[in-house]
Simulated scan of single mutants.
Amino acid sequence: MASNLDEIRKAAERVAGSHGLDVVDIDLSGPAKERTLRVFLEKNEEGRRQLKAQIAAGAEGLPERLVEGRLTVEQLSGVTHEDCEAFSRDFGVLLDVEDLVPGGEYTLEASSPGLDRKLTRAEEFRRFAGCLVKVQTFEPIRNNRHWRGRLEAGSGRIITLDLAAMHQNSKSRKAGVEKVEIPLENVEKAELIPEI
């Protein structure tokens, strides 16, 4: 199944790129006759740059929180319903023509990764520096596997969380530290915490 997901991801990235989008994540789940293939998309770097230019120019029709600065372009994926529709149409045809989903029965869903999107790659941790995140580690750090804080600019393969930015659970408070460094290979799960 993993190799199929790799092939599906590569195909999704080709189609997304032709629409000015990036694939954030892919998930294929469910029993054989009710499988759902979810593709999470966002504007690519050029699309985000254009969105920033629209904000600077005072374009109308943009989300209020974005214009007011309560939400950054990086946090908002910028994907529209039209983007998802066009991607789904083209990607669905490609999936069927290349027979990439075994068994052929599936439901395709394309959407934004949401404000609480997952972070998995080093470049995502760099891109979202300054945002609130929650991180779960494989191995405990200071007897704790669950951390919440503001992501600081990473230095390669280690992320740093400013713990003073958020109320911590009792284990985190007992650790008695204001910052924690976590090697990326120890990150089991990480996601943004929406700031609205």
Results as ranks from 00 to 15, higher is better:
residue 123 E to I: 14
residue 50 Q to T: 10
residue 92 G to C: 02
residue 104 G to V: 00
residue 69 G to A: 05
residue 52 K to V: 10
residue 73 V to D: 09
residue 66 L to P: 01
residue 60 E to Q: 15
residue 73 V to P: 02
residue 108 L to P: 04
residue 67 V to E: 02
residue 76 L to H: 15
residue 93 V to L: 12
residue 79 V to H: 10
residue 115 L to V: 11
residue 71 L to N: 00
residue 94 L to N: 08
residue 120 T to M: 11
residue 90 D to K: 13
residue 106 Y to Q: 01
residue 53 A to L: 09
residue 93 V to G: 09
residue 106 Y to G: 00
residue 68 E to N: 10
residue 66 L to N: 03
residue 111 S to F: 07
residue 62 L to H: 07
residue 64 E to S: 08
residue 96 D to P: 01
residue 64 E to K: 12
residue 88 S to Y: 07
residue 45 E to F: 06
residue 116 D to R: 10
residue 64 E to Y: 04
residue 73 V to R: 08
residue 79 V to A: 14
residue 115 L to H: 13
residue 120 T to Q: 13
residue 45 E to S: 14
residue 102 P to W: 03
residue 66 L to C: 05
residue 116 D to S: 11
residue 111 S to Y: 05
residue 109 E to Y: 07
residue 83 D to W: 05
residue 91 F to I: 01
residue 92 G to H: 07
residue 90 D to E: 15
residue 107 T to R: 11
residue 113 P to H: 04
residue 82 E to P: 05
residue 112 S to W: 08
residue 99 D to Y: 01
residue 59 A to G: 05
residue 112 S to V: 04
residue 82 E to Y: 14
residue 47 G to S: 01
residue 92 G to D: 02
residue 121 R to V: 13
residue 48 R to W: 09
residue 122 A to M: 14
residue 63 P to E: 04
residue 93 V to D: 15
residue 54 Q to N: 13
residue 118 K to E: 14
residue 94 L to K: 09
residue 74 E to S: 01
residue 112 S to T: 03
residue 107 T to Q: 10
residue 108 L to N: 03
residue 56 A to T: 05
residue 95 L to Y: 02
residue 122 A to T: 05
residue 103 G to W: 11
